[in-house]
């Protein structure tokens, strides 16, 4: 494909990107609208952002969401890295097919099923739903994404390097920590970011597994959205999009910089 894009290719790209970004751009623009009405532009204003920071329910929900996302992303990244190590390196072991299937299935499984099934587990064990149940549910979902991301990197990492460290007398954990881990670190960071944002965004699973004390931000946004469009939701959405976009672009640039000198 050396000849460069044709007019048709450029049209496809422009239309496709327009379709992907126009709704988001409009949402961001209207978060700065003075008027409460969607279609009336009442001038530039940041009043909805101000009212956002006075809304204590929303702030409480945001705090819960950030805590859940932080704990579950960290746990999911650790478990996902271990799972990737097992799947890529351990050769054949008993239950490998089942294990491999379990790390793929939640990627495509409808979220209502995951949410419902975890809720039934918590109910039958008799655990009160709240922070920890949402955290466990999100860890279960995001650990699979973390596994895929780390696995992709591990597959292309030469195991001989770690073997050399072991041959030179390093115990397995030390060989891993000093040789393999620094090499897969960008993927581990990306896995954490992905797990964090997935947890931050999730509505369906959190709705099933959270309790009265642990209402997350998406649940709050969802109940507000059902009542109609409001500039406050636009404002909080803009903040979330900004946060995620900054993080994603930072990780991306970090990966780029590390890759360029070597590859």
């Amino acid at each position: 494909m050396r000849r460069g894009p044709s007019a048709f290719n450029i049209a496809a790209i422009v239309l496709g990107m327009g379709f992907l970004y126009l709704p988001i751009v409009l949402l961001v623009i209207y978060s700065f609208n003075e008027s409460r009405l969607v279609t009336v532009w009442g001038g530039f204003s940041t009043r909805w952002y101000v009212s956002l920071f006075q809304n204590e329910q929303l702030l409480a929900a945001a705090w819960v969401t950030l805590r859940v996302a932080f704990v579950s992303a960290t746990l999911a990244t650790i478990l996902g890295t271990l799972a990737a190590l097992g799947l890529v390196r351990a050769g054949r072991f008993r239950g490998r097919t089942l294990f491999s299937s379990m790390t793929y299935a939640p990627l495509v499984m409808p979220e209502v099923i995951l949410g419902l099934s975890l809720l039934l587990l918590f109910v039958s064990v008799g655990v009160a739903r709240g922070f920890w149940t949402v955290m466990i549910a999100h860890t279960t979902l995001t650990l699979c994404y973390a596994t895929v991301v780390v696995k992709a990197r591990l597959v292309s990492f030469d195991e001989a390097l770690e073997e050399a460290a072991r041959d030179l007398g390093a115990p397995p954990w030390k060989a891993f920590a000093l040789v393999t881990l620094p090499n897969i670190a960008p993927a581990v960071a990306a896995a954490w970011m992905l797990a964090f944002t997935l947890s931050l965004d999730d509505l369906v699973i959190a709705s099933f597994t959270s309790g009265p004390g642990a209402t997350t931000l998406p649940i709050r946004i969802y109940s507000a959205v059902r009542l109609g469009v409001s500039p406050e939701i636009n404002a909080i959405s803009t903040l979330l999009i900004g946060l995620v976009a900054t993080g994603v672009i930072a990780v991306y640039l970090l990966n780029m910089r590390r890759r360029t000198p070597g590859a």
Partner: peptide
């Protein structure tokens, strides 16, 4: 990476 809910809401 951006919230599913927010992107649906935008519509």
């Amino acid at each position: 990476w951006t919230s599913f809910l927010i992107r649906v809401y935008a519509w």
